[in-house]
């Protein structure tokens, strides 16, 4: 067998494997969308869920998902940014940073059920936050922090060392160099990382079941006082998200159209995450273009 046929076989195999992966993904996606899309309607997306009757929607769950996502991002982004800047820009390689990095590695591979149970014991029980959006947001922060930190660190790494030297040579301090030169240049890639991790957070269920809870009390969308129990903004109320809703319906749903609701919710979830991904690419590219050409 000469190297030419060998090459052909190798390429063929690789194409085959790649094609198989794509095929499986497309099949999954197709199945979810085909069975879910017919269920979607304005009513389905906005109406509250019904426990025993058919015709319920996922309005509250959808809202909860976004609210939790935003809260979790508001908490985890500044921490992750700070940690990434410290680790990449300031820390020298010594046992402290090695320990931090190892901790991040381990945390990022922690099963989310474990994160959820930890959140339950610590936030729900110990800190007495109860099943609440806040408990859920903290659990999601734990879930999100390691990967987000690494992704921001990777973004910083893509900015050439010569940019940092350029800043220092102009008489800027290290902090000025980071905030005025490095971060602006890294924004497109940081943004992409943030949106991608948002997709992961959005679809997370296991970490939320025992923290944000499995019930979605009806919300009064005219009441924006965060201290009222039916206010959408109240962070202390239990809040079932879309992903948790899917899990719950499938394990104990007793409404007659449980299957349809589950399919519809899955389609919404998948669409939202697809949207996040496309938005990440689009915004990242746009921003990069604006920085490099204009």
């Amino acid at each position: 067998m000469n190297s030419k046929t060998q090459n052909k076989i190798a390429i063929g195999t690789l194409y085959g494997v790649a094609g198989l992966v794509v095929l499986i993904l497309l099949a999954l996606l197709g199945y979810i969308l085909v069975s879910g899309l017919p269920q979607l309607s304005w009513h389905f997306l906005t109406a509250p869920a019904k426990a025993f009757l058919k015709g319920g929607g996922v309005g509250v769950q959808l809202y909860n998902s976004f609210y939790l996502l935003i809260l979790a991002m508001l908490i985890s982004f500044p921490i992750a940014l700070g940690a990434a800047i410290y680790l990449y820009e300031y820390a020298r390689d010594n046992w402290v940073t090695t320990t931090i990095r190892t901790a991040i590695e381990i945390l990022s591979s922690l099963p989310s059920v474990v994160v959820g149970l930890f959140g339950f014991l610590f936030f729900v029980v110990k800190l007495r936050l109860g099943f609440s959006i806040l408990s859920g947001a903290f659990a999601l922060t734990f879930f999100n922090l390691p990967l987000l930190t690494r992704s921001i660190e990777d973004s910083l790494r893509t900015i050439d060392l010569s940019q940092r030297e350029g800043g220092l040579a102009l008489g800027l301090s290290r902090w000025e160099t980071i905030t005025r030169v490095i971060l602006p240049a890294a924004v497109p890639s940081i943004l992409t990382g943030v949106i991608l991790s948002a997709g992961r957070v959005f679809g997370e269920a296991a970490a939320l079941i025992y923290t944000a809870g499995q019930s979605a009390p009806a919300l009064d969308f005219t009441d924006w006082n965060p201290f009222n129990i039916s206010s959408p903004l109240n962070p202390m109320r239990p809040a079932e998200t879309l992903a948790v809703h899917i899990w719950k319906i499938n394990s104990e749903g007793i409404m007659p159209d449980a299957k349809a609701i589950s399919s519809g919710s899955s389609a919404v979830l998948v669409l939202a995450i697809l949207l996040f991904n496309f938005a990440a690419r689009y915004l990242g590219k746009r921003l990069y273009k604006r920085l490099t050409s204009a």
Binding site: D160, S162, Q163, E165, G166, G167, A169, L170, V181, P184, A185, L291, T292, A294
Partner: peptide
Amino acid sequence: VGMVFQRPNPFAKS
């Protein structure tokens, strides 16, 4: 005491 480097390193700015 300013410095110019071997590889041009303009910032990602205008």
